[in-house]
Simulated assay, not measured.
Amino acid sequence: MPFGSSDSDLFNDLFVSGRIVNYGRGETILRAGEEPQGIFLIVKGFVRIYSVREDGQELSLSIYKEGSCFPLLWALGNIPNEYSFEALTDVELKRIPREAAIEYFQNHCEEFYGLMKRVFVGLDGILTNVEYQLSGDAYHRIVSVLYLTAKRFGEADGPEGVRIPIPLTHQNIASLSAVSRETASLMLEKLKDRGLIVYQRKCITVADIEKLERETNIYKSAPQSQTAPAT
């Protein structure tokens, strides 16, 4: 599993001498099957982790934010990297050799415990994402993805609104929801028409986070053949 970690204080000492590397939005940081050059810490920006199915469709598993570290299973478990990492925004990273991380955690048990705690939090997030990707129709998958993303990364925008500060494309949302880009575009337009989301400066703002949360539960009692609610 492609676990990451998000706790910038935990990694300050570890990455103090790390090499700074930068990637532009849309650039691939690491491809599946490649041998990583080291462990990365996100200093600034957002990175997505994804896999590619046999039919060529991308499936995004999670989004990493500032303070996240990857790929940890390769680094600490000596497990080959099977996932790709892409910059969702311009990103600044720090990179250190795997051997340096192993030596550090062998001598810092408390920090290693903190790392493992973050890994399990990350696992919980990935399992939640997968649950929503496999449940319900396309509309409710996309609603759930937007809700979870807003809860994790969102910034308050008015009394009820939440702005997602990541410029997610329709393809990004399709990949997170396990649907086609065309379907994602149709469902996002439906949400916009219903007043649940608005677009501001290339980012999505959830107009009412509580109302969107209620939408995520509709599919639980609805038949799988249900289509998106009419406007």
Rank of each mutant, 00 (worst) to 15 (best):
L146M: 05
P71T: 00
N78F: 09
I63G: 04
G125E: 06
N129S: 13
Q200F: 12
Y64P: 06
K117N: 09
A100D: 13
V47W: 04
K190R: 15
L115R: 06
I204V: 01
A150L: 07
S135G: 09
G114M: 08
P229V: 01
I197Y: 12
E58C: 09
I204M: 02
G38L: 08
N107E: 12
D124V: 07
T169K: 02
L88W: 05
N107L: 12
G45L: 04
H170K: 12
L148W: 01
M116P: 05
L61W: 02
G125P: 12
L88F: 07
D157M: 14
D124E: 13
Y147K: 05
Y104T: 14
S185W: 01
D9W: 14
E110Q: 13
F112H: 10
Q106V: 03
I173E: 00
Q224H: 15
I142R: 07
V143K: 09
E155S: 11
Y23I: 09
E215N: 04
Y199E: 00
F85H: 09
S180D: 03
P159D: 06
F70G: 00
R118T: 09
D9H: 15
R31V: 14
P2L: 09
K202P: 03
V145W: 02
F105K: 02
F11T: 13
Y23P: 10
E131K: 14
Y23H: 10
N78M: 04
Y147R: 04
D157S: 11
R25G: 04
P97S: 03
A228W: 09
Y113P: 03
L127H: 07
R194T: 11
L186E: 15
S51Y: 05
S185Q: 07
F120Y: 09
Y132T: 11
R181T: 02
F3R: 10
R25K: 00
V143N: 10
Y83P: 06
N12R: 14
R98I: 02
S225D: 10
A228D: 11
S17L: 15
G67E: 05
I204Y: 04
R163G: 08
A174E: 03
V16C: 12
P159F: 06
V162F: 05
V119L: 02
T128K: 10
E189R: 14
S135H: 06
F11L: 12
L61P: 11
R152S: 11
K65N: 14
P71G: 00
N107K: 14
R48P: 07
V16E: 15
Y104M: 08
D13E: 14
S144N: 09
K202C: 07
M1Y: 01
D124S: 10
D124H: 09
E103M: 08
V206M: 13
H170Q: 14
G158Q: 01
E34S: 13
G154K: 00
I63Q: 05
A75P: 00
V52C: 01
S177F: 05
Y104V: 08
F120P: 05
I79D: 06
G154N: 00
G4L: 11
E35K: 01
P80W: 03
S17K: 15
L176S: 02
G56M: 03
V21F: 10
C203K: 15
R181D: 02
L146N: 04
G56R: 00
H170I: 09
K211P: 05
L88R: 04
R181G: 01
I166F: 10
